[in-house]
Each structure stands twice: as C-alpha cells, then as structure tokens.
Design a protein around this nucleic acid. Structure first.
Length: 224
DNA sequence: AACATGGGCAACCGCTTTACG
DNA sequence: TCGTAAAGCGGTTGCCCATGT
C-alpha cells in the first residue's frame, strides 16, 4: 500500500498530453501491469492507481470515445436490469467502452430516463414452483413446445456474458437454461453456485424475471 | 457582461478480491 | 495458512463548460 508520504508526492488532477504520451510509450514498451513501478520508472509523478486508470480508460488501444449508439444504450439498459450496477461486466459486453464510461453514461443519461419511467405490472403467470401469490401472474417462460419466448438478440446478449470468471459463467448458464424448471433464485444464490443451470428466473428488486427473456418484453418499464 | 446553476465527465477514494511469498 | 501488496471495482467528488437569468 502507498503510504501518506508517497501519496502526497503523487501528482493529481487532469492528465496532460505529455503525461499521456509518457504513459502510453511506457506501457507499449513494457506492457501492462505492475503499475506501482510505472510511476517510478516512467518518471511520471502519478500513483500506480492513477496510471492504471488513465491507461484503462483513455490510452488503451481500441478505446471508443463519444456518444453511445442506440444499440449500446439498449444493451446497457437491459444488462443493468439484469445485473445491476456491475459496470465492469456491462462494459465488458460493449467493445471499446470502459466501466467508468458506462457508469457515467448511466448516471447522467439513462438513470434519469429510467427513473422517469414507471414499471408496468407484468403478467407473469404460470410459474409452478412459486407459491408466492405475488408471483402467480408470472408469464409462461416458454410456449407450449417449451421454446424460449425471448428474442434471439437477448439470448445472445446473455449468452455472451460467459467469460473467464465464475460470475459470468453462472450468468451464462442461466442464460442458456431452458425453462424446464421454472423455479426462481436470486443473485446471491447464483454466485454461491447453489442454482442449477436449468433454473432461469431471477429475482431482482424483489421481482422475479426470466434471465433470457428480452428485457423489453419483461420490463415494459418506460411509459411514453 | 457578470453571475448562478446544472449537466457531463474525469479522476479519486476506499473497500474487496486476488496473487504471491 | 497467513499476511501483505497489487489490482479491480463501484461510489463519490470536483472541475469545466454551457446555458439561463
């Protein structure tokens, strides 16, 4: 950990173009990692954390800057409904976007938009395992042939969640699951690995929803 | 023209998780 | 197994700029 003295001698505030250049050159030469050493060896008077953040959010190759496309916006909204403020996970599904950017975009644009909308009641009937009367109106998860009723795009979105870590894999398993089970589970259970992969109903904000359903189907959240 | 206000965004803080000796 | 340092992450702060009065 950095001690107070070290912290005090670290420069703070906005990065100058020449600092960016130094950091960029250094990382391109020596590779990412060992950020504590970067500030010392590169001559930058910045903390390791600061260097890492600057590289990750602005200097990395393939960083996409500027306004979000409608597709990206939709994806952020859908994924936020699904997994909440897991900005790094969401950003991981938006090529060239960073968690910080997604977070800022949500806080400044989408959060207001979503808050101004009001959730409509959802007809979610047919969940066998749910004795809770509040869930009696859950919609059938599949049609009579047990086909998922979500859009292909949403399945792809959710299946695309699969990544290197356990959390992403669990989400991906849920996304893949068919609806033979129809039980419900919450996010903590997923993380703990307590949920078998054929269960596909999340509980989020105390409301159940189906992981692989298109959020625009399940969450008619926005009133025009 | 000067000031106030609010929005947008970059950066920092502090907690958690991971890696390693 | 434990302790420590580094890295990752989400929340928050504060600066800058555009707009309104």
């Amino acid at each position: 950990m950095e001690n107070k003295e070290a912290k005090q001698q670290h420069k703070r505030g906005l990065w100058k173009p020449e600092e960016d250049l130094i950091l960029k050159n250094y990382v391109e030469t020596h590779g990412e990692g060992n950020w504590a050493a970067v500030s010392k060896k590169s001559g930058l008077m910045r903390g390791g954390k600061s260097c890492r953040l600057r590289w990750k959010n602005y200097l990395r190759p393939n960083i996409k800057r500027g306004g979000m496309s409608q597709e990206e916006e939709d994806l952020i909204i859908r994924m936020h409904k699904l997994i909440g403020n897991r900005w790094s996970l969401i950003a991981g599904r938006l090529p060239g976007r960073t968690d910080n950017e997604v977070k800022n975009y949500w806080n400044t644009h989408l959060n207001k938009k979503c808050r101004s909308g009001k959730r409509k009641a959802i007809d979610l009937g047919g969940s066998e395992n749910n004795s809770d009367s509040s869930n009696e109106k859950l919609p059938r998860l599949c049609d009579s042939q047990s086909q998922p009723i979500c859009s292909a795009s949403t399945r792809n979105t959710l299946q695309g969640l699969e990544g290197d870590n356990k959390e992403e894999k669990n989400l991906a398993n849920c996304a893949r699951a068919d609806d033979s089970g129809g039980g419900s589970f919450n996010y903590d259970d997923i993380e703990c690995g307590l949920i078998p992969p054929n269960n596909a109903t999340f509980v989020f904000d105390d409301e159940p929803f189906i992981a692989y359903l298109d959020s625009f189907v399940v969450f008619e959240a926005f009133e025009n």
